[in-house]
Design a binder for these strands. Structure first.
Lengths: 334, 334
DNA sequence: TCGTTGTCCGCAAGCGTTTTCGTGCCAGCT
DNA sequence: AGCTGGCACGAAAACGCTTGCGGACAACGA
């Protein structure tokens, strides 16, 4: 930068301001400066700039599990808006472990990132003092997908109650009489879907029984067990709404192994609409959630609140889910 | 930091050195400083430090496609060693597009990251001047999974020739007579697997024909088409080795739709051993590649070469693949 | 006593930007 | 002519840390 200044016979300040389109600089010199900078291949030094401005232009993306393509796609969505906006994204993976999550957020705070995008692994029961700590330091953050009660903040996610409703009503329409829900764990997505499930049952005059809500977590292993348990119920359920597609895939397999036909004996629907649903033994119906959109929207929201000086009133953005019907739930003749 | 110095009645320098375990400082004062620092919750400012030392402690991880769980797992492996070592990882996704890749690496260079981990999307035909530019600037980098001819450098990956050999010989052992390879595109992994396939054929006295190597890329869509083409060949192949599991999943479906039985009419094996292989119509045999290990090893290698002042002679680490047999290729009676 | 060595510590000078506050200059007005 | 006000630019300080060097002091051998 000094070199450029010397080249042009102006001061270093002029160069600095010109490059940042500061209003102080005349159109003419700015052009000259910018041109010369390009010629010399000047790149601003981020550390120096950061040191002076106290902003890093780095945002931390905290994800429960990169291996779920759902979250991987969110990461893509996030990058697709943060990249062009000049932000650097650093991803960290909490492995669904709230303790990890806290630790990672802490180290990112120490690294002084400008903002956070958090898909929290925090259980609603959890303390979540980390969010308080973020608020104290006035570090902007947006939560996505999961909304821990303790976090209370900007949020972007799918309308999970609607997810539950869509899936359940679909099963009802397909003529299922006894509908079970393999639920997720105690994060907002899990809870809300249960609520949607209950509401749908109620609306159609079905009786709700807590025996018909079985905890399956969100990993395959736990799904197998939950499904086995489910099949031992009497009367045997003829419709299953699963927390996610991984669980649903298990469910299908367990059902087939038990000699049942899917969907005629038992209809199964998942949620998340993951990439390989088409390739399962029985192509899986699912409630689609646009993870790309979640990523995009949360990134946009974060940029907005990082930009404004004032603290922005908490905002919630809900993305409507969409039913994708494949074979696993299709019992009506076409 | 100044505060701590004042607290203890020592100079700021002493504090700085003490915190970095500089040899200049007596054990006693160091203890005092460190203790006080903890009490006051001191966190070093990375920008300031970076500005002074010209190192950022950030490494760029460039990945062709986060949505492939293969790469997502590599990312996890990388993080699992870089995190504890005090490095920050920023992931960027090239979408299998060499132009994106170059752009992203460039912006990361401008951000002055300390090193790169690159799973290159570069085709072997490509120019790849970006690698030259890295070498000129003496920025350390390690390639993983893919090894573009033009990159010539530290590399960690699976022994892809061995992948091809394992899969092909397995099919031969299962009694397949006409074995086809649905190959990937022009990256090293694709090319090497073809070579392994050929060698295995040769070793067992099978004839090689280029008609039996069909380009399928690495996405599902292209797989369907390739598989259809394959089924029209005469004599009809009875063994298929697919570039990856996504392609293999397609292959199974297309085969079933065509009225063939898998594996008795046609045996199919993939590569990558992805998470949901168990849930396909026919559980998919695959050649497992430990992506976690790839991630780990490359991160370790990078740390090593970032640490040493001298330029380290190029090293290649090959990870042996492992055959995982499930139903889709199992024709011999048990 | 005097140099010599070694240990522990502090001074000063950066690292590459931005920010705040001038300063000179000219146009335009009275 | 004198004043105001806006415009284009520059000087100096700051951001928080590190590095190179030199200084104080004690212990030690001669």
């Amino acid at each position: 930068m000094a070199d450029i200044a010397e080249d042009l016979g102006v001061s270093l300040m002029t160069v600095s301001k010109a490059l940042r389109h500061h209003s102080d600089i005349s159109e003419k010199t700015r052009k000259r400066v910018i041109r010369r900078a390009r010629e010399r291949g000047y790149e601003p030094n981020w550390m120096a700039r950061g040191l002076a401005t106290r902003r890093t232009h780095v945002v931390g993306l905290v994800i429960p599990d990169l291996m779920h393509s759902f979250f991987a796609e969110i990461a893509k969505g996030v990058a697709s808006v943060l990249d062009p906006a000049g932000y650097q994204v650093t991803i960290s993976n909490s492995d669904e472990n709230p303790a990890n999550e806290e630790r990672q957020i802490s180290t990112l705070i120490a690294r002084s990132v400008d903002g956070f995008l958090i898909g929290s692994a925090e259980r609603d029961s959890g303390g979540a003092k980390i969010f308080k700590s973020l608020r104290i330091r006035k570090i902007p953050y947006v939560l996505f997908d999961r909304l821990p009660a303790s976090a209370g903040a900007h949020y972007v996610g799918v309308d999970d109650e609607e997810v539950g409703r869509l899936a359940t009503e679909h099963l009802i329409e397909q003529g299922c009489r006894t509908i079970v829900h393999l639920r997720g764990h105690e994060v907002s997505t899990g809870v809300d879907r249960v609520r949607g499930y209950r509401k749908a049952l109620a609306r159609h005059g079905f009786e709700f029984s807590s025996r018909y809500v079985i905890r399956a977590g969100n990993k395959e292993e736990s799904g197998v067990e939950a499904m086995r348990k489910l099949l031992r119920l009497t009367p045997r359920p003829d419709g299953v709404f699963c927390y996610n597609d991984a669980i649903a895939a298990c469910a299908i397999r367990v059902a087939l192994e038990a000699g049942l036909r899917v969907p005629s004996d038992i209809a199964i629907i998942g949620s998340g609409n993951f990439r390989h649903s088409d390739f399962l033994c029985v192509p899986l119906s699912s409630v689609h959630q646009s993870s790309l959109l979640i990523g995009r929207k949360s990134a946009e929201l974060l940029i907005e609140i990082m930009g404004s000086e004032e603290t922005v009133p908490a905002r919630r953005i809900l993305i409507p889910p969409r039913l994708v019907v494949r074979e696993s739930s299709l019992r009506t003749a076409k």
